[in-house]
Design a protein around this nucleic acid. Structure first.
Length: 309
RNA sequence: CGCGGGGUGGAGCAGCCAGGUAGCUCGCAAGGCUCAUAACCUUGAGGUCAACGGUUCAAAUCCGUUCCCCGCAA
């Protein structure tokens, strides 16, 4: 079984690692070109590229998949299967027809729900109780191909963007491996996705992390766990940006207007919302390391009645 | 060389601009008060003020260099 793997992100890396561990080592890895990121804007390889270099698997990072040169190079591998997980670009028709069996996508949602780049985050923002992974036959659309196999995964109360990413990536590989043996047979009998029930999960913007205090505590907490890592749920305290790392809903009626600090103890800072209190447990002030909410209180003389914005 | 914040006892901060015996809140230890306590009172331990060099009678503080952490931006 000759596999070509397309991927870029952390999610993709976990899928790739587990795939290799299971014995499906790709003949070629295709990732996004190095991009300037981080402090100093240095050009850095994607996590998948790094892995390829570390393990000495052939790697290409084309800036475009449409050039004849790139297509020829990929065609030269005569692959049986493409596996595409969070690659970041749509594959053109010429490429999709190359693999002998099929181009397979791994997507961390129950398609046709949450098509697009940020399905995990949006499932958390919306407070969903379950999500899942889908293995589908890639076509020219954005996560619109016929579904081969799906698995539902419950979302626990303790889950956040990190844990759910990891969980879905690991489950995704399992389902993928399960799907491979019977592929040839089932690939022609697939049913198309229902357009009627489809939804789109757009990429998150910095602004999506901004906390709106004029809502229920539960929704703010969902935002906190959904955006952990990036872009992070944030608010302003005395004109400084504070990212909320960990929070909890306290089922008590707030004594103050939304965004006012209702109570403080060693466990955290309790902020009023339109319904219930939001307990901030860990946070990260602008330019500082992450810390317990109480440490922040101690160093910054935070008082009951102070306001977040 | 993209822009910016920061490195001060275990934690979070003040002090730096206008150099002159290291401070605050918390934690920790011991003692006290108390039926009792995470509450309160008293006492105490713990710091080469990131590193190196310079200026000075004197540097956490001024000047220079280096290392490390973080935010923005992507």
């Amino acid at each position: 079984m000759k596999i070509i793997y397309f991927g870029s992100s952390k999610f993709s890396l976990i899928v790739l690692e587990n795939l290799c561990r299971a014995g499906f080592v790709p003949a070629l890895i295709v990732s996004q070109p190095d991009k300037p990121k981080g402090r100093g804007l240095k050009s850095n390889p994607t996590e998948v590229s790094e892995y390829a270099q570390k393990t000495n698997i052939a790697l290409i990072k084309p800036s475009s998949l449409k050039s004849g040169k790139v297509i020829n190079e990929i065609a030269g591998f005569a692959a049986d299967l493409f596996i595409i997980a969070d690659y970041g670009k749509i594959l053109p028709k010429e490429l999709l027809s190359l693999p002998k069996i099929a181009p397979l996508g791994v997507h961390p949602s129950l398609l046709p729900a949450y098509r697009g780049p940020a399905p995990i985050n949006w499932a958390l923002i919306n407070g969903d109780k379950e999500t899942g992974v889908s293995i589908f036959k890639m076509n020219e659309g954005l996560d619109t191909g016929d579904v081969v196999l799906q698995k539902k995964i419950p979302i626990n109360d303790a889950d956040n963007a990190y844990t759910l990413h990891a969980k879905l990536a690991i489950e995704g590989v399992k389902v993928l491996i399960e799907a491979i043996p019977g592929l040839k047979k089932c690939i022609c009998a697939l049913k198309p996705q229902s357009e009627e029930f489809s939804s789109f999960a757009p990429k998150l913007a910095k602004e999506d992390g901004k906390i709106n205090w004029g809502t229920e505590a539960i929704r703010i907490r969902n935002l906190v766990r959904a955006t952990l890592g990036w872009p992070s749920a944030y608010a302003y305290y005395k004109n400084k940006m504070i990212k909320i790392i960990d929070s909890e809903v306290i089922f008590e009626q707030p004594q103050n207007k939304p965004s006012i600090i209702d109570r403080i103890d060693k466990e955290g800072i309790y902020v009023s919302t339109t319904r219930n209190l939001l307990k901030i447990k860990r946070l990260k002030p602008q330019g500082k390391n992450e810390m317990d909410a109480y440490s922040f209180v101690i160093g910054h003389k935070v008082a009951v009645g102070d306001k977040f914005e």
